[in-house]
Design a protein around this nucleic acid. Structure first.
Length: 431
RNA sequence: GGGGGGUUACCGAAGCGGUCAAACGGGUCAGACUGUAAAUCUGAUGGCUCUGCCUUCGCAGGUUCGAAUCCUGCACCCCCCA
């Protein structure tokens, strides 16, 4: 099975500029491929993963990947798919973001692999040097405005201008975005011999713009391919939760939350995710498909997906801590842990400090503790929770209302884990 | 300006002198079931030093042994006639 046919099987190929010849072209010799990433935050999120795994697959197949962070284009704002003019990022923010993103890419790409080492470049480095006049003369000259106007990304913003389709308009700045990205491709061709650009399906217009530009400026035929946008069965974007994006940085989204996000994937989505995002082979993926068909409740697919992706992003250690946290959050009794481990597992859980003396004088009952920790809004509420069997200390159910908590109830040196119901946790730290 | 109706716990809505901490529905919380799904079922849902006590039914007074329920005034809302 060739590299491209595997990509196709995985559903990662949406459009290419050369459907017939691409397979042979890629098998012929190692190629240099690039994909761009918008540095809108100091961390990548799940929405970026598809691009990263595509580059990773190219690299594993022996090609050389170049990740371009859009330091320049990020300052302009890609109009694609946006209904509003975008806020421009400051130079300082961009620099900070680029640093953060670069670090995360290391878990996807090998930057020390000889001829096919990954490269990380910032398009600001070659864009910033242009003077306005030079750019207009050398690059702008090659862009027929009528062609630009025909691109979907522009058309949708301009509308037809009548009442039913007013369009919000776009600034000259955003209109120029396409030129910058197009020139990136030419530059990467010059500098690295990069011949193929990959991107999300929404990038098709920008990619072909680059190919056109290279033909005019360098008389070469470059190649483009897009992957489909990864959406959920209900049409929503992958990687969004009620509380916001799912990030790749452990600070923004803990490995546990990351793991849980994938573990909770819908049955209808999990197959696509396995194929597109993981590196499991076709045989394993189809056997997971079978299990899902016959015994969905087993959720092997979700478990494998969560394992693979957490390991990819957060490493073996991150996966272990996510799995440990999962066991604990879903009921395993808490024992033999220290403050530090608990702090990691319950990083997202509210905590309250309490005087240690209350443990020794027996003045702290379960009911008091639930109220102190904010798990009950009154003592009556707490009492009810206990009576109805919903109160836990270190995941052990407490049945008696007047149970007093002592040093023996500490889960670690100074922390006690309270829980109300199935999932609501709070920590008490005794100082 | 005149006439009528309303204001109840998180929300909607019963109650119209004692048995009212207040029906019922929704929500929320807990439990069971379950696939860490959906649905369903059960219980709880003012506070507390909890077989009892305290504070609630727009606000302030009053009648009564006793008021969410009756009376007076005030505030806000709705409707009808000018």
């Amino acid at each position: 099975m060739t590299f491209l046919s595997d990509l196709r099987w995985r559903g990662l190929v949406h459009q290419t500029t050369d459907d017939a010849g691409l397979e042979i072209w890629l098998e012929d010799k190692p190629r240099i491929v690039y994909a761009g990433f918008d540095p809108t935050a100091d961390s990548l999120h799940v929405g970026h993963m598809l691009g990263l795994v595509v580059l990773r697959r190219f690299q594993k197949a022996g090609h050389k990947p170049i990740a371009v962070v859009g330091g320049a284009t990020g300052m302009i704002g890609d109009p694609t798919g946006k209904s509003d003019e975008r806020n421009l990022l400051s130079k300082e923010d961009l620099e900070k973001n680029v640093v953060g993103i670069a670090e995360q890419m290391r878990s996807f790409l090998d930057f020390d692999a000889g001829d096919c080492s990954a490269e990380l470049v910032n398009n600001l480095d070659w864009t910033a040097q242009w003077t306005y006049l030079d750019f207009l003369r050398d690059v702008g000259k090659n862009f027929p405005v009528n062609v630009m106007l025909a691109k979907d990304s522009v058309k949708s913003r301009l509308g037809r201008g009548d009442d039913s389709s007013p369009g919000d308009g776009m600034s000259y700045t955003e209109f120029s975005y396409m030129l910058l990205q197009a020139f990136d491709f030419v530059h990467l061709y010059d500098k690295f011999g990069c011949e193929i650009q990959a991107g999300g399906s929404d990038q098709w217009g920008n990619i072909t713009a680059g190919i056109d530009l290279a033909r005019r400026m360098r008389s070469v035929q470059l190649v483009g391919m897009t992957w489909p946008l990864l959406t959920k069965g209900d049409g929503a974007k992958m990687g969004k939760t009620e509380s916001g994006a799912v990030w790749l940085s452990a600070e923004r989204t803990s490995p546990y939350q990351f793991y849980q996000y994938w573990f909770n994937a819908d049955d209808v989505d999990v197959g696509d995710c396995l194929r597109m995002l993981t590196e499991l082979d076709q045989e394993e993926i189809s056997s997971l498909d079978d299990v899902r068909q016959s015994n969905a409740g087993q959720r092997d697919s979700q478990r494998r997906l969560a394992e693979e992706l957490t390991k990819l992003v957060h490493g073996e250690e991150g996966l272990q801590s996510a799995e440990r946290a999962t066991q604990i959050f879903f009921g395993a009794e808490i024992a033999d842990l220290n403050d530090k481990q608990l702090g990691q597992i319950f990083a997202d859980v509210p905590a309250k400090e309490i005087s240690r003396s209350r443990l020794s004088d027996g003045s702290l009952t379960v009911v008091d503790a639930l109220v102190e920790a904010g798990l009950a809004k009154s003592k009556g509420d707490a009492r009810r929770t206990v009576q109805q069997g919903g109160a836990y200390v270190n995941n052990r159910r407490i049945e008696e209302i007047d149970t007093a908590l002592t040093e023996k109830n500490l889960a670690s040196e100074s922390v006690m884990v309270l829980r109300s119901g199935k999932k609501k946790y709070a920590l008490l730290r005794f100082k």
